[in-house]
Simulated assay, not measured.
Amino acid sequence: MRIFSYLFLLLLSTSSLAASKAYSPFETINQTGDKLFTRIAASQQQLEKFPELMRDIVEQELMPVIDYRYASYKILGKQLKKTSKEQREKFVQAMRHYLIRTYANALNQYKDQQVIYEDGKIKANAKMTSVNATIIDGNKPDIHITFQMRKNKKTGQWKAYDMVVEGISLLSSKRAEFSNRIAKYGIDQVIVELAAISS
């Protein structure tokens, strides 16, 4: 649980840039951490009274640059072709709300850990890339993270769709979890379950 809690924190810190400006994946990661956590620090009094405010912060600062649709389709995997357009859209929206809740809960664990982001360059025509980062938390072992980033064809914006923490992919873990349930119970039941978890 500790690793995945940190994983969520790292994803949050990468993703609060305005969707209208196309940054490189490295710029996205380096420039958004300060903005997001500065807002959280400034909102501490309100958050103590109204913890649900964290969901609003996630909604406004994070979700515009999370490629939750692409991630949802990857999670569906082979099940994707077996679903209708309406079922896919419902699953995407249910997954979106699930992620908002998950990230908001993870942010409550933020204790001012130090994060070091990799800097670098990519080819002009690159569509996907990986960006590395390290979490330093006092006397605890460093945690190494790799962000999987994807470039939007229309906007040129880089978005995060997966993270690999110490060799464990969040996307692959969720795909194994949800695809098995979809195969066993059907996508409609899984959508109901996601909605219940996210409420």
Rank of each mutant, 00 (worst) to 15 (best):
G120N: 02
Y117R: 08
D142I: 03
I182C: 07
Y6N: 10
E177H: 15
K74F: 02
S198W: 10
R55E: 14
E89H: 07
D112V: 01
N125I: 00
A71P: 02
I66L: 14
E193Q: 13
A124N: 05
E118H: 04
F178W: 11
K74T: 03
E89Q: 12
L170I: 04
V190D: 07
Q60S: 08
D119Q: 15
H144R: 10
R2M: 08
Y23G: 04
T129G: 10
S5I: 06
K35P: 00
L107F: 06
N108F: 14
G156K: 10
M163I: 12
M163L: 15
M149K: 10
A104Q: 04
K78L: 10
R39T: 07
A124F: 00
V92Q: 06
S72I: 01
Q114D: 14
Q60L: 09
F37K: 05
T146N: 12
V58Q: 06
Q148P: 00
Q157G: 05
R101A: 07
D188R: 07
E86F: 05
I191Q: 07
I40P: 01
Y73S: 10
I66H: 09
R55S: 06
I136S: 11
D142Y: 11
K35D: 03
S16W: 06
R55W: 01
K82S: 11
L11E: 13
F147R: 07
K153Y: 01
M149C: 13
K154T: 11
L107G: 15
L80C: 02
V58G: 06
G167W: 02
G33W: 14
I75G: 03
A42F: 02
M149A: 15
V131Q: 08
A176W: 00
N152A: 12
N30M: 06
S72R: 04
K82D: 13
Q114V: 08
L171I: 02
A195W: 02
T14N: 14
N30G: 06
P51R: 07
G33Q: 15
K159G: 09
N132P: 00
S179A: 12
L170E: 07
L80Q: 08
F147N: 13
Y98P: 00
Y110W: 13
Q87H: 04
K81C: 04
S179E: 08
N105G: 04
H144I: 07
N105S: 08
V190I: 11
E89W: 09
R181P: 00
A160G: 11
L17T: 00
L62T: 09
T38S: 15
S130E: 15
A19V: 06
V92H: 09
S199E: 15
S24I: 02
